[in-house]
Design a protein around this nucleic acid. Structure first.
Lengths: 251, 251
DNA sequence: TTACATTTGATCAAAAATAATCATTATTAA
DNA sequence: TTAATAATGATTATTTTTGATCAAATGTAA
């Protein structure tokens, strides 16, 4: 087994168990501890995991490494959310699609549409839908954010401002009644804001773990969005508070 | 069994098993390990699989690179041309890269640079270089041409006009002293024209089979370009005629 | 703190894989 | 047909990778 294969496997099992010891990895992959240490050193230098004494830990803010593949974290609810969101798209729509794994989960359910125009800054979405007949894609230009596999920056915002869509499907890092929509980075929030102001209807897709939480860039009021699509774990009191703001919650 | 047949089979079995060793491939196809290694090297340069020590792996972002499957025509000379072109890029450069398999062939030889900015409309180039540290990418936005895996259209042209690069590396469908640069489609020629007018130095990459031939959209005079990079098959008389126009021919 | 156990990084020899070379075979052109 | 060219497989030298060993560093418990 080559380094590249081991790297993939280590990251996969590390995604499942949040942390692993050198011995555990050594046993699971049938390689010597010395090799595991060398691999962990390389991987930690790449910045894809956190080395610890005796093993390694998952990095939680590791955005989307090879995110096409598997998103075990909340994979189930993301698929559910993606399905519900896709059900709100109809033939002939022009839609904005944000980057992020939750919005990406819509892709699988959009393939059966026969006429759809997608404006997006997300490379994984492009890769997933480029060969689907009936779907035409407008790719937003600008600086490529390698980690997120998405385009950001001023050019991207300008690009979006040249378009109008009937629906926007966006993600956030946090959302609450008090602070509205929040993000980890300003660049990301600028893109999302641009989507919001150029779409007739806005759908916010987020699993319930991010509802009631705040990230540090506060960029838009909650009532700006029309629909919040989330999983069934959302607490009823939170749901009521959100709906009082005029946001329809879909689950 | 010819290289083309082996290539097909290798990609097929690699699609089934996610990774294979040289020996496994050698046994499955009844060819020697030496040939397998040669094939894997070629295929990895084409960007359709990931070479590892001891074998090969499937690529995860293959959808974006898929156009390369048809790239086998003149694969050898394309690699040569790509290598020569890449040798003209130095650390710190900002370059335009056109879509097309010949320009794509530069990628493999650009990875060792430590500081490079690439402005491109080609998804395969993006997919190939997105994970290379030291290379930053500006993706040109606009309508996605699914067949070409590239972005075209007015937005794309506008985008390019916002930038300036020291070098542009472009491809064409035909080039001759009489008709200059020619293309099969107007959209493609508009993009190339935009690259030409915003770069200080223009490198045209094309294998010799396209030299002396004309496609139907005539869009630029031959003398507009500074360098023509091609293979060693180019006829000396043609070469002389081209150099008389002030174009330097590199081989 | 000290004593003890564990983990680590460095070094090295063995094993594996590769690239380069060369003779042979197959293919193509004349 | 023969000569020239290209592709293949075998051989060998080189490089890369691996696992073992061990002193040094780190963490843990008293």
């Amino acid at each position: 087994m080559s380094f590249l294969e081991r790297k993939k496997k280590i990251l996969m099992i590390l995604d499942e168990f949040d942390s692993l010891s050198v011995m555990e990895i050594s046993e699971k992959l049938s390689i010597s501890p010395a090799t595991v240490r060398r691999d962990l050193q390389d991987l930690s230098e790449e910045g894809v995991l956190q080395r610890t004494h005796g093993g390694a830990m998952k990095l939680d803010n590791l955005p989307l490494v090879a995110f096409n593949k598997k998103q075990t974290a909340n994979a189930g609810s993301k698929q559910e959310i993606g399905k519900v969101a896709a059900a709100n798209v109809v033939d002939g729509d022009t839609i904005f699609m944000d980057c992020g794994s939750t919005v990406f989960a819509m892709c699988a359910h959009l393939k059966k549409l026969s006429r759809l125009k997608i404006i997006t800054n997300s490379l994984p979405i492009v890769a997933e839908l480029v060969d689907v007949p009936g779907i035409s894609i407008n790719l937003i230009g600008g600086e490529l954010d390698k980690e997120r596999r998405a385009v950001h920056g001023d050019m991207a915002v300008q690009h979006i401002d040249n378009f109008h869509a009937v629906k926007a499907f966006v993600g956030v890092d946090g959302v609450s009644v008090k602070n509205g929509l929040t993000a980890h980075s300003e660049k990301e929030s600028q893109i999302t804001k641009a989507f919001l102001r150029n779409a007739e209807q806005v759908y916010l897709l987020t699993d319930s773990s991010k509802i009631g939480k705040d990230a540090y860039v506060k960029f838009e009021a909650l009532k700006t969005i029309d629909f919040l699509i989330t999983d069934t774990q959302l607490e009823p009191t939170l749901k009521m508070e959100i709906e009082e703001q005029g946001v329809k919650v879909l689950q």
